[in-house]
């Protein structure tokens, strides 16, 4: 529109983004930016002051999220986003700590940290941008790459079975478990708000296309991946978690699966160790 080109308005999220770092590193067609945007809109809509948030990221494409958000944030070593977030939460229990990272960082290099933070029911929100591959390092096979999918290290197809992330989170003790795709922006924003309100370990898996390193080898353009997300997904919040394997031929199940109450780590810890002080 010519009238707006003459007098540009600022983007409504510019107060939450470090504008000096934009444009970001994410490729054309990458969904990480959309997931990041949905997360920012949830933070904005929650009405909580920005200085009560902290974002922690690991290494990887989506690990750059902590560098682009204009709240106190932490870009940590590979796989160690959750231990740093645990430390922040233990030191400042009033902060809303959000871990924004990728599937390789959270489940391959940092897999043990994830299951133990879920077991302790640490009051943090983990958003996993699942692009099914190690995108930044050149498309190697990851713990979430689907069976028979091609990657740079499995050129004839992946012989392994991938993780079922919502089942893993639930079995480890998470109290909020959800899965969406990057196309379901408003559902992600709602899930992030529910996770912020949940006192305990919250896990949100978000499927996102990687057109450069996954799509190129598996003959999937970014908009074709989005069409899969649109046509071959089923929203079923009371689904059996053991049937949540990612198989687009059968249909990928999305929803807010688990939302239950359990005493969080802070409550248990302060009950035993700070009882006389409080």
């Amino acid at each position: 529109m010519k009238a707006t080109a003459a007098k540009p308005l600022p983007h409504p999220m510019e107060d939450l983004i470090r504008m000096d770092r934009i444009p970001h590193i994410w490729c054309s067609g990458c969904g990480t930016g959309s997931v990041f945007m949905a997360c920012l809109s949830a933070i904005k809509e929650s009405g909580i002051p920005y200085n009560e948030f902290s974002m922690v990221s690991g290494i990887g494409c989506s690990g750059r999220g902590a560098g682009y958000i204009n709240v106190d944030s932490f870009h940590t070593t590979h796989g160690r986003a959750i231990p740093f977030a645990t430390g922040i939460k233990m030191a400042k229990p009033d902060l809303n700590v959000i871990v924004f990272s990728g599937d390789g960082d959270l489940f391959a290099i940092g897999g043990n940290h994830f299951i133990h933070a879920a077991r302790r029911n640490m009051d943090i929100t983990v958003i996993c941008v699942n692009n099914l591959i190690y995108g930044m390092t050149g498309g190697q096979v990851a713990a979430t790459t689907p069976h028979k999918a091609k990657s740079s290290t499995t050129a004839a197809g992946n012989p392994e079975t991938p993780f079922n992330l919502p089942l893993l989170a639930y079995a480890s003790g998470a109290t909020f478990v959800a899965r969406w795709t990057m196309l379901h922006s408003r559902d992600i924003a709602d899930a992030v708000q529910m996770a912020l309100n949940n006192k305990g370990f919250s896990f949100i898996e978000v499927l996102s296309p990687c057109p450069i390193n996954y799509g190129r080898r598996n003959k999937e353009k970014a908009l074709e991946t989005l069409r899969l997300y649109h046509d071959n997904t089923i929203i079923k919040s009371n689904a059996d978690l053991s049937e949540l394997d990612i198989d687009f031929k059968r249909g990928v199940v999305l929803g807010n699966f688990i939302n239950k109450e359990k005493p969080s780590h802070d409550e248990q810890y302060s009950k035993i160790y700070h009882a006389e002080a409080g």
Partner: peptide, 29 residues
């Protein structure tokens, strides 16, 4: 790159383009 342009006046201010854009490059008022 070829950016989008507006071709009709049918916008309902649903903000979905704003939520979906990975580049923070489009918004509606």
């Amino acid at each position: 790159y070829h950016p989008p342009t507006v071709k009709s006046e049918e916008c309902l201010d649903c903000c979905y383009c704003q939520l979906l854009c990975p580049e923070f490059a489009i918004f509606t008022v």
